[in-house]
Amino acid sequence: MYPSDFEYAAPTTVQEALELLRQNPEAKVLAGGHSLLPAMRIRLMSPPLLVDIGKLSELKGVRADGGVAIGALTTYHDLEASSELAQRLPVLVECASNVGDPQVRNRGTIGGSIAHADPAADMPAVVLALGAEMKVVGPNGERTISADDFFVDMLQTALEPGELLTEITVPPMPEQMGAAYEKFKHPASGYAIVGVAVMVHRGADGNVSDCRIAVTGAGPRAQRARAAEDALKSGMDVAEAAARASDGLEYIGDISASEEYRANLVRVLTKRALTRAMEQLR
């Protein structure tokens, strides 16, 4: 298929990229292109200008400094291959290796996935479960948005026009931490019909001190399964907590899965993810 005509720019500095976005409000940012280009191919999107941020090398890579900072342009493959992540946040490695196929993982980026906010993408669930923060720069300088505030609606985020996502930071984790990602794939697209990411902390008293459960695929955006989180924190066991995971979520039903089936998958995958996460606690 053939997209409409568009202009192309490849800035070499963040400031230059921001300037291009300021001057061209209809422009789209091109990172790995694995959501944008398919949409352009079928003319679902016809941006007049693509701002390719691929040359902004400062946005690539994983840094550990207490917590972990991941450049928005880091590819899924680089997440999979990161020894820092393998050691500190293996759930991100697990999640990245669940995305698409090797070709997709070589091109697709974590920032692209999060900024695009596809309702069935994997990364939004994991960053939401990890309580990550999104660092963005824009015409008015830099600001930080928590994952809880970032995913607004289907394909909608808290990014303002002209803003660029630069980094995803995950706060330092306690030693007694477990996390896991479970996914039921759409057989055609490979996206999540439902994906559930969980993180659990255990306090000194041996009880669950914190728990975050994030669901993708079920509804229009990545969402917290707060009923299950509260249940687990209040001392219920995994099965009891997981049975509440589908409560209070928004759902989408379509030809690949009904709302009812998605709710079932939320419960089942939460149980499986929590079970694995709890096993990681020592």
């Binding site: 398919p38 079928i42 196929d101 759409h186 057989p187 055609a188 697209s189 030809i255 690949s256």
Partner: peptide
């Protein structure tokens, strides 16, 4: 409603 390979499922090697 199954007008693309994002919706119409043909198996990949691992399927």
């Amino acid at each position: 409603l199954t007008g693309s390979l994002m919706d119409y499922s043909i198996p990949r090697a691992d399927m």
